[in-house]
Design a binder for these strands. Structure first.
Length: 570
RNA sequence: GCCACAGUAGUUCAGUCGGUAGAACACAACAUUGGUAAUGUUGAGGUCAGGAGUUCAAUUCUCCUCUGUGGCUCCA
């Protein structure tokens, strides 16, 4: 908590209007206010993390100390929220003041100004050296090094289950699908951070696999950089100044580290690790980077907006002449993923210089112009989003519509002249002179979390077979058919090693088992009974349709193989 | 962060005008051996999100906190 003690000739104060609605009404006497002479006024602001008992004790200690020095006999405890920007909740603050008042009353005449009211006040400070003192009383239990007392069982109860309020959600909301299909969950102890379950992680991994395949072909390398990095690195990059409020901090041996909110600084260090030649450019370096950003709590929502997310990031270091070709290639990649593979329609925006930025106006002019030229040359339809660029450069953003018609920024291409400057990146040119590369930041999925959320709603959970967590489920009609079913599973598994198959041999009706499989949105439900066993066939139920096709196992394998292999839509 | 709303079993929900709770599904056991979206019986499951207050008594009333949802603002 913070306090300001004022040794005064007098103070007059009077409550006017309630400032907090949770505060109770005042008595008639309190409403009149007070007028006290020869008084030590203690302005107080109780802060978050302050312990009720300890803070009150410390407050009393400090007030006694000052009062003794200035020989004050009257004390006014005056709640003054303006001393702090991280206030404690009102009930805690009131308790601290009440406790302190009780204790101080043993030695002084004490008044307490009403809490939670706007008050007018007038005072005259004496002006001697000790008449104005401010003190900061640090915190709760931990800072006083008292032994931390806690009860694990009690704490466990405090961690309540995260209940989803589904009242305003649609049936195909990714949060509902995520629960029904056992894809992911959230917990109170990690707000805005995803717990991926097996089924959800399969989707995530499949997206990464596809991404790797495509990017390798497109000439990308892949790296991975540390999760926390020294503060100094972020001061160099400019994040410390322009992005500080979003960064999580942590300490290690008296050094401050930032949990990375972006991947670029790490990528810079890899670039700088070894001298580069013009022959290395364009250098395309990808990274599936997990980043953390402190977001305002009210903006979090399912997978669409989280605190921890995975960016399919890449940084391209190139010469000025290569910019156009590189950006054009990235736009083609985005088109491949969005239109050809997933059937999304998207909208393009050009985001220009924001208020908080690094780099000269001249550089910004050039960068914005470059992007605009490329968009025009490619004949892309786009909107200008003024002031929405990254702090290091302008960007081209790609927005996908979700099932409710809301738009989410996913892919982005950012042109950056500033960061290479700050990190003094260089390569040796043909003429043996050192040159500065230009950098492109880009993502295609944007955030895997957000992308998966949109994907789930887009397909209403019925993901294409190559993405489906369970691709085939084999059901037996009776216990008699279990062995044959197992053989089928073995056979399909032998033909398609990475196929995701499971079985339901429960002793219930076929209808019940089919229903379960349909609810899990399994693309192929194979049913085997006596008839199939005799004919050496399988009965295949194709997701969504009630049609059942009888076929030989080999035929089914071919069909499945084809479908898993062909990710691009026909 | 701000405004509004929500939190009861693994899930979906009912309920208590204040006297510590119930259904369905899921789960387990047993019976049943079935033909493409729910077989039957029995059983186990809850400090009613957490904390404080009022009260003889709080899941229920009041306040605070946390998380979630919708919107604002911000972003991938």
């Amino acid at each position: 908590m913070k306090i300001l003690t004022l040794h005064c000739d007098y103070i007059n104060f009077k409550p006017l209007k309630k400032a907090l609605k949770s505060i109770g009404e005042l008595s008639e006497k309190e409403k009149k206010g007070e007028n006290i002479k020869e008084v030590l006024v203690v302005m107080t602001a109780v802060e978050k993390g302050d312990d009720v008992k300890i803070s009150a004790e410390k407050l009393v200690e400090n007030v006694m100390d000052v009062a003794k020095q200035v020989k004050a006999k009257n004390i006014v405890l005056y709640p003054y929220a303006h001393l702090s920007s991280k206030l404690a909740s009102p009930d805690i603050a009131v308790k601290v003041l009440e406790n302190a008042e009780k204790e101080l009353k043993k030695n002084f005449k004490v008044s307490r100004a009403p809490f939670g009211y706007y008050k007018e006040f007038e005072l005259k400070v004496k002006g001697h050296p000790l008449s104005e003192l401010s003190r900061e009383i640090v915190g709760g239990e931990s800072t006083f090094k008292r032994k931390e007392v806690y009860d694990e069982k009690k704490l466990l109860r405090e961690i309540s289950k995260t209940k989803l309020d589904t009242s305003k959600l649609k049936e195909n909301d990714h949060r509902i699908l995520g629960q029904k299909m056992d894809l992911f969950s959230f917990s109170e102890v990690a707000p805005g951070m995803v717990f991926w379950h097996n089924n959800g992680l399969i989707i995530r991994n499949e997206l990464i696999n596809l991404w790797r395949e495509v990017h390798r072909k497109a000439g990308y390398e892949e790296i991975s950089t540390p999760q926390i990095l020294d503060k100094r690195l972020w001061q160099i990059s400019g994040h410390w100044e322009k992005y500080k409020e979003n960064i999580f901090l942590t300490d290690y041996e008296k050094r401050t580290f930032a949990v990375k909110p972006m991947n670029c600084p790490g990528g810079m260090l890899v670039f700088k690790n070894k001298p580069k030649s013009y022959k290395d450019l364009p250098l395309r370096v990808g990274e599936m980077g997990i980043v953390h950003r402190q977001e305002l709590s009210g903006v979090l929502g399912g997978l669409f907006r989280v605190i921890q997310f995975t960016q399919d990031d890449a940084h391209i270091f190139c010469t000025e002449k290569q910019i156009e070709e590189e950006i054009s290639a990235i736009m083609d990649l985005i088109e491949l993923f969005y239109s050809k593979i997933f059937d999304f329609s998207y909208r393009v925006e050009l985001s220009t210089r924001p208020e908080k930025r690094i780099g000269s106006e001249k550089i910004w002019d050039k960068a914005e112009k470059t992007l605009e030229n490329i968009l025009k040359k490619k004949k892309m339809k786009y909107k200008i989003n003024k002031g929405d660029g990254a702090f290091y450069g302008p960007k081209i953003d790609f927005h996908i519509k979700d099932s409710l018609g809301r738009e989410w920024q996913c892919a982005t291409i950012q042109l950056d002249f500033a960061m290479p400057e700050r990190f003094e990146l260089e390569y040796t040119g043909k003429d043996n002179k050192k040159k500065r590369p230009i950098m492109l930041h880009r993502v295609v999925y944007g955030s895997l979390e957000r992308f998966i959320g949109i994907l789930l709603e887009h397909y209403n959970g019925r993901l294409p077979t190559w993405l489906a967590p369970i691709q085939v489920r084999v059901l037996s009609f009776t216990d008699r058919n279990e062995n044959y079913a197992k053989k089928i599973i073995e056979k399909i598994g032998g033909e398609i090693p990475m196929v995701r198959m499971d079985a339901d041999f429960m002793q219930t009706t076929v209808q019940a088992k089919v229903k379960d499989a349909e609810l899990m949105k399994v693309p192929y439900i194979i049913v085997v009974g006596d008839k199939e066993e005799k004919e050496g066939k399988v009965a295949v139920r194709i997701r969504g349709s009630k049609k059942i096709e009888e076929m030989k196992v080999g035929e089914f394998v071919e069909r499945l193989k084809r479908e898993i292999g062909e990710k691009e839509r026909a």
